[in-house]
C-alpha cells in the first residue's frame, strides 16, 4: 500500500491524422475504486486505456499521473503460446521466487491444476483467467481491463465477473474496465463513465450493494439511463429490456 497515488489525467488529446479521438479528456480515479468506461465503438475507450497502459505515447501537453505498477488484461488472453502457463504468468517478474508467486496467483484464479499446461490447451475462460493471474501477480495499483470478457460465452462471463470482483476485493487495485456491455458495467463498477466523441459525456455513480441483480429496479433504471446516454432510441431500449 506504499503507492496510493490517484490516477489523474488532465487535458489528454489524441489525434490520428485529422481524426481527434480524445478531446482534452480529464479523468480522476480514486485509489481502489472500480470504474467502468462505456462508449460506442470509435468513442476513444481503447485509446484512453492504451495511453494509461503506456502502449501509446502520452502527448507532452497532457498531465498524466499514474501509480508505479500498472497491469492490463486484454480482450484476447495474449498468452505466449511457447511458454507454459506458470511461465506466462511469471513473465518479466524479477527475483528467484517468480515461479512461486506465479503459482500462487494461478491458484487464486482456480488454475492450480494447469501450471504446466500449454496455453493452446486451455479453454477461452481458462486462458483469460491465466491472463488475470498474470496481471495480478504484479500486484498492480492500477488494473486495466480492455473488454476482457467480450469473447467469452455467457456462463463463463458470469463466473469471470464474480472472480474479478473477488480479486478486486482481495487486492484492492484501482480498476478500470473498458466495455461496451452496459450490464457488465452496472454489475461490476462503482462508477460508470460514458465516453462520447473523445470526452466524458456522463459520470454516474453506481450506488448499489453487491451482489447486484439484473432484476433490481435500480439496475433496470440505471441500465436504461446508460443506454440512452449511449444514444439508443427509447423504443429500442424497451425492446432490449
Amino acid at each position: 500500500m506504499s503507492d496510493q497515488r490517484n490516477v489523474s489525467v488532465r487535458g489528454l488529446t489524441r489525434r490520428f491524422g485529422t481524426n481527434t479521438v480524445l478531446h482534452g479528456l480529464d479523468l480522476e480515479l480514486e485509489p481502489g475504486s472500480f470504474t467502468a468506461l462505456l462508449g460506442r465503438s470509435g468513442s476513444g475507450k481503447t485509446t484512453l486505456l492504451r495511453t494509461l497502459a503506456g502502449l501509446d505515447p502520452a502527448p507532452a501537453e497532457a498531465a498524466i499521473e499514474l501509480p508505479d505498477r500498472v497491469a492490463a488484461v486484454f480482450q484476447e488472453p495474449r498468452l505466449l503460446p511457447w511458454k507454459r502457463i506458470w511461465a506466462n504468468v511469471a513473465l518479466g517478474l524479477p527475483g528467484a521466487d517468480a515461479k512461486a508467486r506465479a503459482e500462487r496467483a494461478l491458484g487464486e484464479v482456480g488454475l492450480a491444476r494447469h501450471l504446466e499446461a500449454w496455453p493452446t490447451t486451455l479453454s477461452g475462460g481458462e486462458a483469460q483467467r491465466a491472463a488475470l493471474a498474470r496481471a495480478l501477480v504484479r500486484e498492480p495499483r492500477l488494473l486495466l481491463l480492455d473488454e476482457p470478457f467480450a469473447a467469452l460465452d455467457a456462463l463463463t462471463r458470469i463466473r469471470m465477473h464474480a472472480l474479478v470482483l473477488d480479486l478486486w476485493r482481495a487486492h484492492g487495485p484501482t480498476t478500470l474496465i473498458v466495455t461496451h456491455d452496459v450490464d457488465e458495467a452496472v454489475l461490476l463498477a462503482d462508477r460508470v463513465l460514458v465516453l462520447d466523441a473523445g470526452r466524458i459525456a456522463a459520470d454516474i455513480a453506481v450506488d448499489m450493494p453487491r451482489p447486484r441483480s439484473h432484476g433490481d429496479a435500480r439496475f433496470v433504471a440505471l441500465r436504461r439511463r446508460l443506454l440512452s446516454e449511449l444514444g439508443l432510441e427509447a423504443e429500442v431500449i424497451r425492446e432490449a429490456a
Binding site: 497502459a53 497491469a71 486484454f74 495474449r78 505466449l80 518479466g92 504484479r138
Partner: peptide, 16 residues
Amino acid sequence: PKLMEAGRVFGLDRAG
C-alpha cells in the same frame, strides 16, 4: 504485435 504489447505491458525491455 499483440503479444509484443502484452510483453511491454508486463515490463519486458527490448532484450526481453
